[in-house]
Design a protein around this nucleic acid. Structure first.
Length: 220
DNA sequence: TTCCAGGCAATAC
DNA sequence: GTATTGCATGGA
């Protein structure tokens, strides 16, 4: 019964913010540019190769509880160092990686996470992983698994993040203690499973959430 | 200065 | 099973 409402929200967000073109893919032509990550609105053909898949996976780890602007710097640095060749990345010393991803925060944990997912990625040999496989990897939780599946592998699973929860709780769809899988199921039960649509919807939710950020005032 | 950002695992209860 | 805590940087 929520189908109509959800599609209406999507149309409204699309009208306000336009196509978002997620997930940003690094542009090697502007490798020395300031902001080398770029978006590709209405082009759902990305990632176009293994390197771009690996880039999205790295970004998904790095953006865990981190500001994307900080992550973009790390992505840029990894691109310069490895061109997102997974085998090349795996050979890097931990100290090099820590220094390279420093701006994303939690660099000790994230270095370990990146190495583990890189090993997994190489062993996949271009196959598509399952959600269960991803969740077994240390450092991959439901949101990271879903973003990897949706944006690196074009699998139409709905991705829930802090923004999605906040926005749709505000809209009255969920209550404060709604669980990840419960919210995910809600969207998937009420929407057509189309990866392009899911990619766009999630990106629009994030954009909207950023634009309606509540400026908290600690002491009330 | 304080607070938060495209979470997750470990630990405590 | 649910709640809390540690992880860390950079910009507002």
């Amino acid at each position: 019964m929520h189908k109509k409402e959800l599609y209406k929200i999507y149309e409204k967000l699309l009208k306000i913010y336009g196509f978002q073109g997620w997930w940003p893919i690094h542009d090697f032509l502007s490798i020395d540019g300031r902001d080398a990550a770029f978006y590709h609105p209405q082009d759902y053909s990305y990632p176009k190769n293994e390197e771009q898949k690996f880039e999205i996976i790295c970004g998904a780890i790095l953006t865990q509880n981190a500001n994307w602007q900080n992550v973009a710097k790390s992505v840029h640095e990894i691109a310069k160092l490895t061109q997102f060749d997974a085998a090349k990345f795996l050979k890097l010393d931990d100290e090099i990686i820590k220094n390279t991803i420093k701006s994303s925060g939690y660099f000790n944990q994230k270095t370990k996470k990146l190495k583990l997912i890189t090993e997994f990625f190489i062993n996949l040999k271009s196959k598509t992983p399952t959600r269960e496989q991803l969740l077994q990897i240390w450092g991959i939780g439901p949101e990271t698994a879903d973003s990897i599946l949706l944006y690196a592998y074009k699998q139409p699973g709905f991705l829930i993040d802090a923004y999605t929860k906040r926005v749709f709780t505000d809209f009255g769809f969920f209550n404060e203690n709604a669980k990840y899988d419960e919210m995910k199921k809600f969207f998937e039960d009420n929407l057509e499973k189309d990866y392009k649509f899911f990619q766009e919807f999630h990106a629009l939710i994030v954009e909207h959430a950023k634009n309606t950020r509540i400026k908290t005032n600690k002491k009330q």
